[in-house]
Structures are given as structure tokens and as C-alpha cells.
Simulated assay, not measured.
Amino acid sequence: MLYFVCAFYNEAKPIINFYKLKRVNENKFFQVFEREDIKLIISGVGKINSAIALSHIVSKYGISDEDIVMNIGICGSKNREIGEAVLVNKIHDVETKKDYYPDILISHQFEEGTLETFSKPVIDFDIEDICDMEGSGFFKASSKFFSPHQVQLIKIVSDHLDGVRLTGEFVENLIEKNILTIDDYINKMKKSFIKKDLLDDWDRKMMEQVSSALNLTENQKIQFNKAYIGYKIRESKSPEFVKNILNVRVQGKNESKREFKKLISKLYE
């Protein structure tokens, strides 16, 4: 299933039109639009509303390892161009000071960026990159049901935090201009979820040998496996360079940590 969560109708309308979604009239709590393999819910503004809407829609239609959950909407930015689409790789909740990290495992056409989520509209405020009012609530709720690589946020810059009032038509045009790029990214994600033959015998053997050679902890093994799989998805080949680790004599935890960090960094290059 492909799930979309949008804060308001003008953000959702281009998605509804592109995927030819139909209104679910019997839903009394939210505006929901659907076709067989896609569900879209309009949450209302704010991180609590976004979290509630996400929980409502996935509880109603179900959860699987191949689901994709997308938060599409506008954002503010001091420095980025109006209309630029940003794939979020870090979310910072300004109120709670907590950070969240979606996993981005595949190549894409977007610029990546850090999203700060506020509880109130932001006007003339010093932010790191982009900001909204839903992101952290959406991601925190999604993380209860899905793995980080299934949950993605794409934000389109709509203003420079100058208090300019945006029209519905303006917002719709911003989303519509990026809809083909969004759809391309979704299709790549779907392909990456096809697990058949992703790892061959050489991969499995090498991952096991590297884990043993570096004496990885369970948490490090999870990080290594994720980085290894991400590399193979992006590059469509095995990272043969990992076998060089087997020639390194690692003595002690500190040396193991250094070699592990170098390996993870190379896998994400």
C-alpha cells in the first residue's frame, strides 16, 4: 500500500488528480481519497493532527513490510528557492528537541535537507534549512508501524518566512510541478522493496565474515546490514571493497570502532 498524508486539501489535490483517487464518503473523521493500492488522508495542520491521521489510516487499511508512507506538503525556508522540492533526511522537533532520521537508501533527483517542525506558524525566525508544522508528528507516529526506510517526507518550499499569504492555487501549482519527480521516487522505492535475489550467497557470506572480523555488536550489525543493502540497491552491485576488511588485523574495541566507521562511511559514499 502507498499512504499519503497531507495537511490540507490544496496540498493533496495534485496527488488526487495524478493518481485518480476517489473520495471515501463513509469516513466521518477525515477526508480520505483512495484507489485499490493508494490511500490519501488530509490531516489538518499541526504535528498532533498529522500523527492522529496517520494512525487512523494505517489502522483502518493495514500494515505490511512493502508499504510506503509519504508526507507531502509545503514548507518555509530562508535560503532555498521557491518551488524547490526537498527530500528530508533529518527532522528536528523544535519543542521537544528530539531528532528523527528517515532512511534514504536509493538514488533520487531531490536535494536533501533538514526539517524543523514547529508548533506555531514561523515568521522571520532563524532556521537551519526548512520548516513545517507536521513533520515530527508524522514521522514519530509512522515509526510505531513502519521501518525508517518506509517513511519519507518531501517538502516543497512555498515561502521565505516573510508572512506572505499563500493562495490555494499557488500551493497546488507547487505540488503539481513536482508530482512526476515524486512519482519517479515512489516507483524506485517500490522496486527496492522487491527482496528476491537482492543478496546472493557471496553477499551473505561476506557480511557474516566482516561482522566476525570486526567483532560487531548487535547494533553495529544492524547498521552494517542497512548500509550494505543500501549500497547494493543504489549501485546495483555488491560492494566488493568490504572484503578488504578481512585483511586488517583489528586489536581492541577502539580500533574496531575506527574500522567500522570507515566502512560505513564508504558504503554511503
Score class of each variant (00 low, 15 high):
240 E>P: 00
142 S>Q: 06
12 A>K: 00
47 K>L: 10
143 S>C: 06
73 G>S: 06
21 L>Q: 07
182 I>D: 03
77 S>V: 05
130 I>D: 00
39 K>D: 07
105 L>N: 11
62 G>I: 05
117 T>S: 12
105 L>G: 00
213 A>Q: 15
89 N>A: 08
81 E>C: 11
256 S>D: 08
201 D>M: 11
252 G>N: 03
260 F>C: 08
150 Q>A: 04
33 F>N: 01
245 I>H: 01
41 I>V: 14
227 A>G: 05
57 I>V: 15
230 G>L: 03
119 S>V: 11
31 Q>H: 11
173 N>T: 11
152 Q>C: 09
188 K>G: 14
34 E>H: 08
184 D>G: 05
211 S>L: 06
12 A>Q: 00
44 G>H: 05
48 I>V: 15
254 N>V: 11
223 Q>I: 09
165 R>L: 15
148 P>V: 03
187 N>A: 10
152 Q>V: 09
84 E>A: 03
225 N>R: 13
42 I>H: 00
3 Y>G: 08
195 K>P: 04
20 K>W: 01
99 D>L: 10
269 E>P: 04
187 N>L: 14
202 W>F: 12
30 F>N: 02
237 K>R: 15
138 F>G: 07
31 Q>M: 14
193 F>L: 12
33 F>L: 05
37 D>F: 06
159 D>W: 06
7 A>F: 02
21 L>M: 04
204 R>P: 00
206 M>Y: 10
133 M>C: 02
267 L>A: 02
226 K>I: 12
78 K>Q: 13
98 K>D: 13
66 E>F: 14
159 D>R: 07
31 Q>A: 09
89 N>H: 13
89 N>V: 09
78 K>R: 14
258 R>F: 07
10 N>I: 00
136 S>N: 07
113 G>A: 04
85 A>C: 03
256 S>R: 12
171 V>Q: 02
132 D>A: 07
141 A>N: 01
117 T>P: 02
178 N>Y: 05
211 S>M: 04
210 V>P: 02
103 D>R: 12
71 N>L: 13
251 Q>F: 13
108 H>V: 02
94 V>N: 10
169 E>Y: 11
139 F>D: 01
21 L>V: 01
107 S>H: 11
19 Y>S: 06
211 S>G: 15
43 S>G: 05
34 E>K: 12
97 K>C: 11
213 A>P: 08
13 K>A: 14
123 I>L: 09
173 N>Q: 12
62 G>T: 04
124 D>G: 07
180 L>Q: 14
121 P>F: 01
146 F>I: 13
19 Y>M: 06
210 V>W: 01
10 N>A: 14
206 M>F: 07
185 Y>R: 00
29 F>Q: 15
96 T>A: 05
155 K>D: 08
74 I>W: 02
237 K>S: 10
18 F>K: 14
225 N>S: 11
60 K>M: 12
169 E>W: 08
97 K>H: 08
91 I>G: 00
